[in-house]
Design a protein around this nucleic acid. Structure first.
Lengths: 186, 186
DNA sequence: TTTGTTTCGGGACGATCGTTCAGGTAGTTT
DNA sequence: AAACTACCTGAACGATCGTCCCGAAACAAA
């Protein structure tokens, strides 16, 4: 079994990835509603037929894009935990920083994440992807208190989505006491 | 200043309301993506031009619908608090029941609520409507601990949106301990 | 070189979209 | 009754949509 020796397939996979990246940029800018074969193709700098060739339908493209987005976010969460552990932190500072980042510079990406959530609510096939970062946290963090852990996960999601409808992004300092409260054992 | 004596305007307002109700049903069934002049008109049983007459654009219709939806939910929250107070409860049972209701029978409505959230993230004009139920809670509940209250609000949102991507709706009994944890003072 | 496979892309088709328009109807005012 | 206003609606226009077709090009296997 050979791994990727065909130059044609290599180019195809690369373009496929470029299309997904372009689709994500479109979602960040205009939301899922702005995703059409033509807008994505234009964003990627490829002809319209290229997106239909690599994805059997527009829905496939959307699903592939959001799954890719979810994987990236899960990876980000993974490294955040790793970072916190390496400096022996309880994680409050890292979490607050990550939230501030998600609601500030990464606001578009965060909105895309929640568009994935809503799409997953209607498309069961997307649910594993949508739950991915939750699973990463669940598997990596030792939780002696099951209920407290569920509250923590819900709190993160709530802070993010409420932060999206605030008029301006919060700073890490503003978020800090809330995150502390969420992490404080009792 | 006379109040609604013109029969023509009365009929117009009634139809306007019917269109909004139909649009909400479409959103619950197919999401914001499924909203077009034609689908809404068909759902309401009116000609297509009727929706364009009463709403200057499709966007106006969407905004009006989601504002109406948000007002209904705020009212619901208001009565829940009232109910809890009248029986001297701390509210945990009522909150758990409301969440189970929102994720079970009212699942479509809840998804519509969060489509509003995401739309509000992109359209500042919708933010007051999206924050409405938060404001109702904030104004009605005495919160001696500001941070704990913010965690409570975030937790509710997180439980709801995570419940939407679970494979089945949770029962009030499953939610109860988490809600208890959120409400427990310390 | 020949044959087969995979990617590429211009062009087009039918469907559906938001919106407009102009004429018609019903209710109000004078 | 006449003038006016507000609501109603069938028909249609131009734009955009997803998708398909088919030949060309690039690359691999023979």
């Amino acid at each position: 079994m050979k791994l990727q020796v065909d130059g044609r397939k290599a180019r195809g996979d690369k373009r496929r990835a470029e299309i997904i990246a372009a689709a994500l940029r479109v979602i960040e800018r205009d939301g899922v509603a702005g995703v059409t074969h033509r807008t994505v193709a234009a964003e990627a700098g490829v002809p319209t037929t290229s997106t239909t060739y690599h994805f059997s339908s527009l829905d496939d493209l959307l699903v592939a894009t959001l799954i890719s987005c979810a994987r990236d976010m899960a990876t980000e969460v993974y490294w955040m935990i790793d970072r916190a552990r390496s400096r022996g932190s309880r994680g409050a500072e890292e979490v607050a920083g990550l939230l501030a980042e998600a609601l500030g510079p990464q606001r578009g990406r965060t909105m895309a994440e929640y568009e994935l959530y809503l799409l997953a609510a209607r498309k069961p096939e997307l649910r594993p992807a949508a739950r991915r970062w939750l699973d990463v946290l669940t598997s990596m963090v030792r939780h002696d208190d099951e209920v407290a852990f569920r509250v923590f996960l819900a709190g993160i999601d709530g802070l993010l989505i409420q932060g999206l409808i605030d008029d301006g992004p919060p700073s890490a300092e503003e978020l800090r006491p809330v995150v502390d409260y969420l992490l404080k054992p009792r």
